[in-house]
């Protein structure tokens, strides 16, 4: 009797299929619109899309870690060499 429609298919997101219910259907649609209720669209979606910033943060984090590995490794060797020379 009542089915959800994708947003954009008439704007109201709800249609009443029973004949003679047109007026009430309009009312229901208006109420939904007024209350700003979100109705799950029936179309499938690709969710959790990454953003430009997500990847930029990942890139910077990888480079910081790469630098730290080298820095610490060099420091370890320097300390080791110092100890050997003592």
């Amino acid at each position: 009797m009542c089915r959800q429609l994708h947003e954009g298919q008439g704007g109201g997101a709800v249609s009443i299929e029973k004949p003679g219910w047109g007026g009430r259907a309009t009312l229901v649609v208006a109420i939904f619109q007024r209350m700003n209720l979100s109705i799950k669209p029936t179309l499938g979606m690709i969710t959790n899309l990454p953003s430009e910033l997500d990847y930029k943060l990942l890139a910077n984090s990888c480079l910081t870690q790469a630098f730290d590995i080298i820095f610490e490794t060099d420091k370890t060797i320097e300390n080791h060499t110092k100890k050997l020379n003592e």
Partner: peptide, 22 residues
């Protein structure tokens, strides 16, 4: 350890390219 840092540099390059594509 140095090899691990190369893998991280490569991952960073790919992430930078993906950021631009996004």
């Amino acid at each position: 350890k140095l090899n691990a840092s190369v893998v991280l540099i490569h991952q960073a390059i790919e992430a930078n390219m993906k950021s631009s594509i996004c």
